[in-house]
């Protein structure tokens, strides 16, 4: 009698804080049910079991920042039928991409007395710079509802329903008053991809862009609006240089590229 194929899930970690893979364990109501429909074949943070590949679904957390990891991601790709990056590190290089373009030797010397013991690259780069990525989940951290949607969609063989609109759409949907118009607070919501549920404005704080750039963001216009609200160039540069510092649209906005006013 033919047995139904239970898909194999693998979770991989590169340079990261572990927060995005923790999101899976944070699904307290769904985790055991999930383990009943998908075979957790490789997830070192949660289990000693390590089953051999190939894996039907690989979730990759973290960025590539060492020579060892640059090789390891190739092996992960070869063993993975469908590879999804989870979070800002894997998708854009993470906060550690702030080293890119800086003096890495000097960076190392601040932390380590013996930099020669340390395996590190001068850059922290997203997974898609190294291998083909089938889907990307945004966020620093990812949203666990989006993670469950991704896995459910995968199990049903459909494309995940993940919005690519801006955070503004989520503020409108939840009825949050705009912090830019009501409080004159410079906000990254208009150029940041939705997915978090627009938490920050709901907490009286402007969006700080942890889900990274939306599709075709108008950063030039937003920067002008920020200046009108009193932000200086340092404020603007810093705002685009955080957890998605390596995302091209934010990197260009921080450097003033494609910016008519600079």
């Amino acid at each position: 009698m033919a047995r139904k194929h239970i898909p194999k899930l693998a979770v991989w970690k590169f340079a990261s804080c572990d927060g995005c893979q923790l999101s899976l364990l944070d699904c307290e109501d769904e985790f055991l049910a999930l383990a009943g429909v998908i075979d957790i074949a490789n997830f070192p943070e949660a289990t000693r079991t390590k089953k051999r590949g190939p894996y039907d679904l690989s979730l990759v957390e973290g960025s590539i920042s060492t020579m060892r990891d640059r090789e390891r991601i190739q092996k992960v790709r070869r063993q993975s039928k469908y590879l999804v990056t989870i979070g800002a590190c894997a998708t854009a290089g993470g906060v550690q991409a702030l080293r890119n373009g800086r003096d890495i030797a000097e960076f190392m010397s601040v932390v380590y007395a013996r930099p020669d013991y340390i395996d590190t690259l001068a850059t922290s780069t997203p997974i898609s710079d190294h291998v083909k990525v089938d889907f990307e989940l945004r966020g620093c951290p990812i949203n666990k509802s989006q993670l469950l949607e991704l896995i459910t969609a995968f199990l049903h063989g459909r494309r995940p329903a993940i919005a690519t609109t801006s955070v503004c759409a989520e503020c409108k949907a939840r009825g949050t008053v705009c912090v830019m118009t009501a409080k004159q607070a410079p906000c990254l919501g208009p150029v940041t991809q939705a997915g978090c549920g627009a938490i920050c404005p709901a907490y009286d704080r402007s969006c700080y862009g942890c889900f990274g750039p939306m599709e075709s963001p108008n950063t030039v216009s937003l920067k002008e609006q920020w200046r009108n609200l009193g932000a200086n160039e340092k404020d603007i540069r810093r705002a685009f240089q955080t957890f998605n510092a390596g995302a091209p649209e934010f990197l260009n906005a921080a450097r003033g590229h494609a910016d008519k006013n600079n």
């Binding site: 804080c17 572990d18 927060g19 893979q21 550690q96 960076f107 190392m108 380590y112 620093c140």
Partner: peptide, 28 residues
């Protein structure tokens, strides 16, 4: 664990940014 150089990349940032930046050291 690959080093991420938080102590280096915090230099030049505003004191107000430290809570959000250092949170990223650990997701747990």
């Amino acid at each position: 664990e690959p080093p991420r150089f938080f102590e280096s990349l915090l230099r030049g940032r505003a004191f107000t940014e430290a809570p959000d930046v250092t949170a990223r050291i650990c997701g747990i």
